[in-house]
Computed example of a mutant assay.
Amino acid sequence: MTKTGLMTDFSPKANWQWQFDTEREKLMLNMGDYSIDIVYKANMLAFHSADPVFFTIEDVANYIELFDSISLSDFPPQISCTIIVHILAVGLFHKPLMPKSWLFKSLNSGTQEVNKGDRVTLTSSRTDQTGDYLVLENSDDFVLCMLVGDSHALTASKSLQQFQIVKVTRDKICLPEVETENNWNSYQIF
């Protein structure tokens, strides 16, 4: 996150805009006196314009719905805001991903039901490290997940950083053993 001021109000404003910083090759959401750098690499984004794109009414509606969802209640507002901004960036600008299932252990028969917004874990096939993820998309065969933990070591030299996404087959995901009430209500981001 890039701070140019202290953010205490997380409600979307008319001046919020997506900007691509061509010098740093970074997408960011400029929120007036505050901005959030998006972690996705420039080559994975379909937005490289120097012209800003303002937050739309649909962006605002999706942001508010997600911010008010019960599953974000265990995160501080600043982290919830950053998670949501990354979810919106995926829906708006991220190019499709190929599955990377070989990086993760098969942990179930692939029949577990998961929905958008569910918290799941993925375990690295090389390091045995488990990461905390959020389901962004769910199809019959694949699940697109965003890392909400700090980082997840996948191999000795490769790791995902917070808010990065990965697509895996359904047999790689594991629902937490203890169900919590912190599941998102359904939402539409695409």
Rank of each mutant, 00 (worst) to 15 (best):
F67V: 01
N30H: 05
G131A: 10
K26N: 12
H152N: 08
G91E: 00
F104D: 00
E58P: 00
F10V: 03
F104P: 02
D118N: 12
T180I: 03
Q129M: 12
S80P: 10
Q19E: 15
L45R: 14
Q17M: 09
L136F: 02
L88G: 07
D171A: 07
L134V: 00
I173G: 03
L92V: 00
F55D: 07
W184C: 15
V148Y: 06
W18F: 02
E177P: 01
Y40V: 05
Q129H: 10
S11C: 11
T130Q: 04
K100H: 13
W184N: 14
T4S: 11
L107W: 08
M146A: 07
K158Q: 13
L72T: 05
M28A: 13
T8M: 11
S124Q: 05
Y187S: 14
L175P: 03
V166H: 05
W16E: 02
V135N: 02
E23Y: 10
S109N: 15
I36T: 08
N62A: 15
R126G: 00
L6E: 10
D140F: 12
Q78M: 12
V143A: 08
V85F: 05
M7S: 10
A46L: 11
L122M: 07
M44A: 10
N115K: 14
K95T: 06
G110M: 00
N185V: 06
T22I: 09
I83F: 00
A89P: 00
L97R: 15
L122S: 06
E177T: 11
S159V: 10
I36M: 05
L134T: 01
L134F: 09
D132Q: 13
P99V: 12
L154F: 04
D171P: 07
K26I: 08
A14M: 06
Q17G: 10
F142M: 04
C174F: 11
D118E: 10
T180H: 07
N182C: 12
W16I: 04
I64K: 15
N138T: 10
L97C: 11
D74G: 08
E137R: 14
C81M: 14
L160G: 03
P96H: 09
L45N: 08
N108S: 15
W102T: 15
Q19H: 12
K26Y: 08
F163G: 01
F190R: 14
E177N: 13
N15D: 15
M98C: 11
K167F: 04
I64W: 04
E113R: 14
I57Y: 09
S71F: 12
D9Y: 03
V120R: 09
V135E: 00
W184Q: 07
P77W: 06
T8Y: 08
A50P: 00
S109C: 11
D33M: 09
S35A: 14
D141M: 10
L92A: 11
D68Q: 15
D33S: 12
K3E: 09
D51V: 12
T121Q: 14
G131T: 01
G117T: 02
S73E: 14
D118I: 05
K95F: 02
S35D: 05
F47Q: 03
E113H: 12
F190P: 02
